Computed example of a mutant assay.
Amino acid sequence: MQHFPTRIFPRVIALAMLFTVSTVCAQTAYPTKPVRVIVTFAPGGVTDIATRIIAPRFGEGLGQAVVVENRAGAGGVIGADAVAKSAPDGYTLLSAFDNFASSPYLYKSTPYDPIRDFVPISLLVRSRPVIVVNPKLGANSFEDFIRVAKAKGSALNYASAGGGTSSHLIAELLKMTAGIEPTAVHYKGGAPAITDVLGGQVEMMVATISIALPHVRSGKLTALAVTSASRTALLPGVPAVGEFYPGFDAQSWIGFLAPAGTPREIIARVNAELRRAIASPDVKSKLEAQGFEIVGTSPEAFGEWIRNESTKWSRVIRDRRITVE
C-alpha cells in the first residue's frame, strides 16, 4: 500500500477549501453588471408595460440596474431568438408573452425550440381574457351568444389583435369547443380591434381585461365570459367559459426565461428576486390595475406550464390549419 507524506494533506485541504470558497464567491457575486431583459414586442404593449413595472424593484433586489430592451418583430420570434443565442450567464433574460409557446407552430422558420433552448425562471402574472360583444348583437349572456353564433354561422365576425395572437387562438379554441364558426377579422393590435367592436363594424372579440374593462363598465360592451376555468375577481359577475365547457382554460400570461445552460444558482437567484418584486405592494397594485393576477411560480412549475401550453396550442393550430406568414 502506497503512503503519501503527511505534509501533503494540509496543502490538499487548503486547496479544496480555496476551491470551495472560490465557487461560492462566483455564485454569490452575480450580478456584477446590469441585467438586460428582452421584451419581444413594441413599447406600450402589455408585455412591455408589465416588464417595466417589475424591472425597478427587481433591479433593487439584484443590486444592479435592469435594462428593458424592446426587440419586436415576427410575433416575438426575433427577440426570443436573440435571447436563445445569448451567453447563458444570467445577464440576458427574456420576458415572454403567452404566444411564446405557440410561435414555433405558427411560424415555419422559428429558429429555436421554446423548451430545449430556454430555462424557465418564473410564470409571473396571468390575465383572463374576456369575450365581449357589441350590445347591438342582442346577446346578453354567454348562452345567448352561442345560440346567435350558431344561427349566424360565418356571417358573424370576430375581431382579433392579429393573426396568431392569443385573441385569435383563443377564439379558434372556442370555435372548436362550442361548434361555432364566426369569421376572423385581424387587426394590427388590440386597440384598433376593440375600436371596431365598439363601433359595431365587428360583433365580438376575445380581449384582454385591461383593454375591455373600461368599456364594459361604461356599458358600451357586454362581457359574456372570461376564457378561463374559473371566474376573476375583476369581473365577479361574469361566468367562466369553463363553467359551460369543463376543461376549457385559456389565459394570457407573462413569464421570464433564460438561455439554456444558465447555472441553476443564477436561475434560483433571479426567481427569488422576481417573486419578491411582484409581491411588493407597489408593484402588485400596479400590475393588478392592468388586469393581471400575481402568480410567481417555481422554475419547475413554469416549465410544466409551458409544456402544457405548447401541447394545447399546437393542437388548435394544427386542427384549425392556422398559419402566419
Rank of each mutant, 00 (worst) to 15 (best):
A50E: 04
F41H: 14
L15F: 12
V226G: 04
Y30A: 04
K220N: 14
S314F: 07
R147T: 15
A233H: 07
V77M: 11
R11Y: 13
G247Y: 10
S167P: 06
T232V: 09
L62S: 04
I266R: 02
E300G: 00
I254P: 01
F302W: 00
I53H: 08
Q201L: 14
P129K: 09
K152T: 00
L198S: 01
I49K: 15
R275Q: 13
R147F: 12
V197E: 06
N134V: 10
L213Q: 11
V130I: 07
G200V: 10
V202D: 07
T311I: 13
V216R: 12
L93P: 04
V46C: 04
G61I: 09
F97C: 08
G303T: 01
K188L: 14
I131Y: 02
I306V: 15
T110R: 05
N134K: 13
L257P: 01
I131G: 02
R147D: 11
I211S: 08
I317N: 09
A50I: 11
S285F: 01
Y105V: 06
P31E: 07
S109I: 13
L93V: 10
S109C: 02
I278R: 00
R126H: 11
K136A: 15
V133R: 07
T232G: 01
I38S: 04
L93A: 07
V295T: 08
A155H: 13
L274E: 02
M205V: 13
L235N: 09
V119H: 02
I317T: 11
Q64E: 13
M17F: 14
T311Y: 12
G59Q: 11
T227H: 09
Q290A: 02
E143H: 11
V21F: 12
I131W: 08
A96E: 03
V238N: 00
G200I: 09
K175D: 06
W313E: 06
S127M: 14
T40L: 03
V295A: 03
L137Q: 10
L93Y: 04
S103F: 07
P299Y: 01
L198K: 08
F244I: 03
I211Q: 12
T183S: 12
L173F: 14
P192W: 12
T222M: 09
K312V: 11
T227C: 09
G247I: 12
A65K: 15
L62I: 06
P239E: 00
V226S: 00
P43R: 11
I54K: 05
A139F: 08
Q201H: 14
M1D: 13
I170A: 08
L235D: 06
V130E: 04
L94I: 10
T177I: 05
V83G: 03
G59C: 07
A229Y: 08
F118C: 01
G291V: 02
Q64D: 03
I180R: 04
V197Y: 02
P129Q: 08
I38Y: 01
F118D: 02
V68L: 01
P214C: 10
L235E: 01
P214M: 10
A268V: 03
K152M: 11
D249G: 05
N308F: 06
F142H: 03
E243F: 15
